[in-house]
Computed example of a mutant assay.
Amino acid sequence: MSWKAIFEGIQSFTEDVLFIPFDALREMELESWFGANIMSWIFMLIGFVAFVYWMRELKSFNDNNEEDRSSTSHGYLAEDAVRQQ
């Protein structure tokens, strides 16, 4: 068995099996724009829900004062600001 046969088998499996739902969506494109882009809508919804969840978590940490805000990212930046004054 050669490497070429392995990669052609992966290609065949991907095109013939894994892309079946996307081929069905492509056929639906002429009938309904929303139906053809359902995967995009689903990914946008997942992203929006994740964004709202993350913002609520950040707000809860901010309200509890759990974040240490005393340090700067680089010590030399704070020292440089003191020298300039």
Rank of each mutant, 00 (worst) to 15 (best):
K59A: 14
E27P: 04
A36C: 00
E67P: 01
G47Y: 05
Y76W: 15
I10N: 03
E31S: 13
G75H: 00
E67F: 12
Q85N: 12
N62T: 10
S12M: 11
R83K: 06
V49A: 14
Q11A: 13
L25G: 00
I42K: 02
F61H: 14
E31A: 13
I10D: 01
L30E: 12
F48W: 11
V82F: 14
I46A: 13
W54F: 02
T14D: 06
Q11I: 08
E27M: 11
N62A: 15
Q11V: 09
M1F: 09
G35D: 00
M1K: 10
F22E: 04
N64V: 10
F48Q: 09
R69H: 01
W33Y: 12
S2G: 08
I42A: 07
F22A: 08
Y76G: 01
A81F: 12
E27V: 07
G75W: 03
S71N: 06
F51E: 07
A50K: 11
L58R: 15
S40L: 10
R56W: 09
S32P: 00
F19G: 02
V82E: 15
A81K: 09
F19W: 00
W33E: 12
K59G: 06
D23S: 07
S12K: 12
N65D: 11
E8T: 07
M1I: 06
E57V: 14
V52P: 05
F43V: 09
N37Y: 01
W54T: 11
R83I: 15
D16E: 14
A81P: 00
Q84F: 05
P21V: 00
S71D: 01
S73L: 12
F61Q: 13
G9M: 10
F51M: 12
A78R: 08
F7L: 14
L25H: 05
M44P: 02
W41K: 08
V82R: 12
S12P: 00
W3E: 07
D68G: 04
D63I: 00
Q84A: 13
N37H: 15
H74R: 15
A5D: 02
A36G: 03
M55T: 13
E15H: 06
F51W: 03
F34G: 07
F19R: 10
D16I: 07
R69N: 07
R83V: 05
T72N: 05
E79Q: 11
W41M: 15
V17I: 15
S2N: 12
E8I: 12
D16H: 06
T14P: 04
N37V: 08
S70P: 03
F48M: 14
M39C: 13
